[in-house]
């Protein structure tokens, strides 16, 4: 049942009719004849009985108006408002559900992306460290090799110098010894001196 908007004149008419009791109170006449017993049951009373019957007729007319207005205008309107509200709430709940699902998906995606990025960064760091370590090791090795070669060369030079110095030592010692002996004795046996120097050097391990 599609609700119809109530015509303004009908609403006005109902409102005006509703003011009838005010008019009634403004000029309430009193019954000429008192009613014995319960007025509700005085159907035989000349005046009251007539009003009682009339009230039944009025009741059906007025209740009929109420039923018509309620069934045609008022209740379908309320039903529509309630239905609109129900649909609205349901729609909102569905929207919220969808939004939550979207948010959950976005969160999951974000977490996956973060995980991937973390793994990639970890891998990059590991590779870079390995590269750096390898490069450093290579460099150190090259340096070690160069230094080793230099040390070896220096040692050879030192050994050569020492050998040549050692070789010169015998001549110098023999000459010095011969000169000393000649100065002391006036003559020198070169063969004996040479032998003695050789023996002395051999004794000191410097031959």
């Amino acid at each position: 049942m599609k609700p119809r908007a109530m015509k303004p004149w009908l609403l006005l008419a109902v409102a005006m009719l509703a003011f009838a009791p005010c008019l009634a109170l403004a000029a309430e006449p009193h019954l000429a004849e008192p009613v014995p017993g319960m007025p509700q049951l005085a159907f035989g009373h000349p005046e009251q009985g007539r009003f009682l019957i009339a009230s039944i007729v009025w009741l059906f007319i007025i209740f009929g108006i109420l039923y018509y207005v309620m069934a045609t205008y008022a209740l379908p309107g309320v039903a529509q408002v309630l239905e609109t509200r129900r649909a609205r709430i349901e729609g909102d709940l569905e929207q919220a559900q969808a939004a939550k699902q979207r948010a959950d998906a976005a969160l999951a995606e974000h977490e996956a992306a973060t995980g991937r990025a973390r793994a990639e960064a970890q891998a990059a760091v590991t590779t870079a460290t390995q590269h750096a370590q390898a490069a450093a090791a290579e460099k150190a090795e090259a340096l070690n090799a160069r230094l080793g070669a230099q040390i070896e060369a220096a040692e050879q030079r030192i050994a050569a110098s020492r050998d040549s110095a050692m070789a010169a030592l015998r001549g110098v010692a023999t000459d010095t010894a011969a000169a000393l002996v000649a100065k002391l004795t006036g003559g020198a046996d070169h063969a004996a001196i040479d032998q003695a120097v050789g023996a002395e050097l051999a004794a000191r391990g410097r031959a």
Binding site: L11, W58, Y73, G77, V78
Partner: peptide
């Protein structure tokens, strides 16, 4: 035969109608 009883029936109809139509006229959520 329009008595104070009839008048109050009309008042009742008026009050119910006003409540259900004027009261619902905003149709608010």
């Amino acid at each position: 035969g329009f008595t104070q009883s009839t008048a109050h029936m009309l008042l009742a109809v008026g009050v119910v109608t006003l409540l259900m139509i004027w009261g619902m006229s905003n149709r608010a959520i």
